[in-house]
Structures are given as C-alpha cells and as structure tokens.
Amino acid sequence: MEFNKIEPIYAQIIQDIKLKLFNGTYTLGQVIPSRRELAKTLGVNPNTIQRAYKEMEDMNLIVTHRGQGSFITSDAAVLAAIREEALYEAIHQSMGLLRSFEKSDSEILTLIQSYLERGTSS
C-alpha cells in the first residue's frame, strides 16, 4: 500500500479497508489482518495501526474478539450506512470541484445529464 504524504496514515488505512469492502475484496464477517500483522506488512508504527482499528471499532465497521482477531462487521445495515456516507462524500467532493468552474448548480446538472446521454459515462 502506497501512502500519500498529506493525510494521516491511520485515515488512509481506514479508507483502504472501506474500499476493499466496497469492491468485494472483503466480505461481511471476514477476518482482517491483526494489528500486529498489518504494522509489519506496511512497515508502519503499530500505534498508528491501533488508532485506525480503534476508530473502525467505534464506527462499528470492524469488531475485535479477544484471542480471535478482528473481523469486518457482519451487519449489512452498518455496511449500507458506511457505503452511503462514502457515496455522499464522493458527491460532495465532486460538486466542490465542479462548482469551482463557476457554473450554477442547474448548469452543472444539465452538463452531467448531457454527458450521460452521450453514453460516455463508462
């Protein structure tokens, strides 16, 4: 995993695990690497990994069972909520970018519609 230099590493690790969950690399209830393993494979300070895992536990994205390891939540509703949040975040960021071209929201909407109609959405 390559880290960018600007965002905190713990945030990038959370982002990476979310992404793996959204794209199917991880499935509900699946075991994920232990803190120790991940610190070793990424060559990152284990306190940073601890922070990422703690935060993911707090948002119910993962659960840790003592002596068994950490698992992705098996609650589909939690996954749906996190996915929705990530989707809104993506829309928020895209809108910020589009608005920087000094177009009104309705112009942006028209542009997106005609873009999709041209069939170049892929």
């Binding site: 610190a39 070793k40 060559g43």
Partner: peptide
C-alpha cells in the same frame, strides 16, 4: 518497526530523512 512491535521500547531517532521515516514515528 519489527523490534518495536515485539518489545514496545521507547525509541528516539535523529534523522534528516523526514519523508522516509515519518511512517515510523509517533
């Protein structure tokens, strides 16, 4: 890092290689 994972000592490192070591540092 491997050693720190095992023993959790307190480690002080002087360095000029900032971008290459920041992921090690608390």
């Amino acid at each position: 890092i491997d050693d720190f994972i095992e023993e959790g000592q307190t480690i002080l490192i002087t360095t000029q290689e900032i971008t290459e070591t920041e992921h090690l540092l608390d």
